[in-house]
Amino acid sequence: MAGRNVKLLRVERSALADNDAVARALRRRFREAGVFVVNVIAAPGAGKTSLIVRTIEHLRGWARVGVLEGDIVGNLDAQRVLAAGAYDAVQINTGGQCHLDASMVEQALSRLLLEELDLLFIENVGNLICPTHWVLGEDLTVCLVSAAEGHDKPRKYPEVFAKSDAIVLNKIDLMELSGFDRSEFVRHIRALTEAPLFELSCRTGEGMAGWTEWLWARVRRPVGPMPMG
């Protein structure tokens, strides 16, 4: 009888709206627990774990730092951050998935002493592409690249730089050795974002103070001035 009654529905929503909703719930939970959350995104080997380790060392005695370690398999990084003085750490194995999503983080929280933390790092799976779409309820997204990877990374993966609240250039001790063109790197970063850029070396410790001070100011825990060292 009547023909097909086809109607156009305006939607205008992110295709990942479901993950976004879980992330919003996580954000409320982090707020209630009084925990500042930093999502660290980088390629494998750029120095995510090293940066977290160094930051924990700088904040020792000042902040209780927890870590969620995203990785395809294994728990090496969780052991590393615990050895460095992390208050608690939980390994999340994604079983092949190239990014963490909000429900993985939600599940991992049942194994983490969240209420007792001041700061929580989420080390995302080593990848500059996929993690950018999946918000996790974080206060800050930090994108880390190392001088050894080359200065063309902003041109190749602009979206992660554009989305990050801070950019860390690690392994500056290898800059010369790697033929890293700093001005080329900075020029392209600045086309994408006004976010602060921290140039440092987790090996020598150079530049670490600037990064930790900036982070500490964002965490704004009312426990006192920035520790030195």
Binding site: R4, N5, V6, K7, L8, L9, R10, V11, E12, R13, S14, A15, L16, T132, H133, P158, E159, A162, K163, R187, H188, A191, L192, T193
Partner: peptide, 22 residues
């Protein structure tokens, strides 16, 4: 080199065409 306006990384559902019951 200009300033970024849009990173072009969207994953967005604009609309659906649906068949209504009646």
């Amino acid at each position: 080199v200009g300033k970024l306006l849009d990173p072009g990384d969207e994953l967005r559902v604009e609309s659906l065409e649906v068949e209504m019951a009646n």
